[in-house]
């Protein structure tokens, strides 16, 4: 006997939750408990009084699984609103990365040149290294990191995806 799996789609969800202890564990744990995927998860408070956090989750599953993910999130007590940005239509997704590159001579010059092409900022420098801050779609960051490997990539830190629907309306 072999275990079969269905065709998966990638969806980006925006979830607003009451900012209380354990809320992230509750959300993340629901995904593991029900066998759903998390490709990326970001969370930060978005209100002046620290009362509500916005979580952006990128998940993958069959359309039926995605519908369940949304419904399961929606029924959790501290969850205010769940929006499937992918279903909603056009939206922007951005990610920020810090990329440390070491090298001297030509490598150093090439790193700066590539950084300019990718509109990455230098946020730290020594005689033999840079830390670049690069923002954009995940694929852009992937490419930047890939290029830096040739030059002298030391380490990478990425935020995961934040996303928002286009247009004037709030979700």
């Amino acid at each position: 006997m072999h275990i079969k799996e269905g065709l998966k789609e990638r969806h980006t969800l925006s979830v607003t939750v009451t900012n209380e202890p354990g809320v992230l564990a509750r959300i993340a744990g629901m995904f593991t408990a029900r066998g759903y995927n998390i490709e990326s998860l970001t969370v930060a408070d978005i209100t002046e009084d620290d009362s509500i956090s916005r979580i952006t989750i990128v998940t993958a599953g069959t359309p039926a699984v995605i519908e369940q993910v949304v419904a399961q999130l929606d029924r959790m007590v501290p969850v205010h609103k769940v929006t499937d940005l992918t279903l909603l239509g056009d939206h922007v997704e951005r990610e920020l990365a810090l990329v440390k590159v070491a090298g001297t001579g030509d490598h150093r010059i090439e790193a700066l040149r590539l950084a300019e092409v990718f509109r990455a900022n230098v946020v730290d420098t020594t005689i033999s290294s840079f830390v670049f801050e690069v923002t954009g779609a995940s694929t852009k960051i992937d490419r930047f990191v890939e290029l830096m490997k040739e030059i002298g990539l030391v380490e990478v830190a990425r935020t995961g995806i934040v996303a928002m629907a286009r247009g004037k309306e709030a979700i």
Partner: peptide, 8 residues
């Protein structure tokens, strides 16, 4: 009463 029961 539970939306997540629908189409589960």
């Amino acid at each position: 009463i539970d939306r997540s029961s629908m189409n589960k």
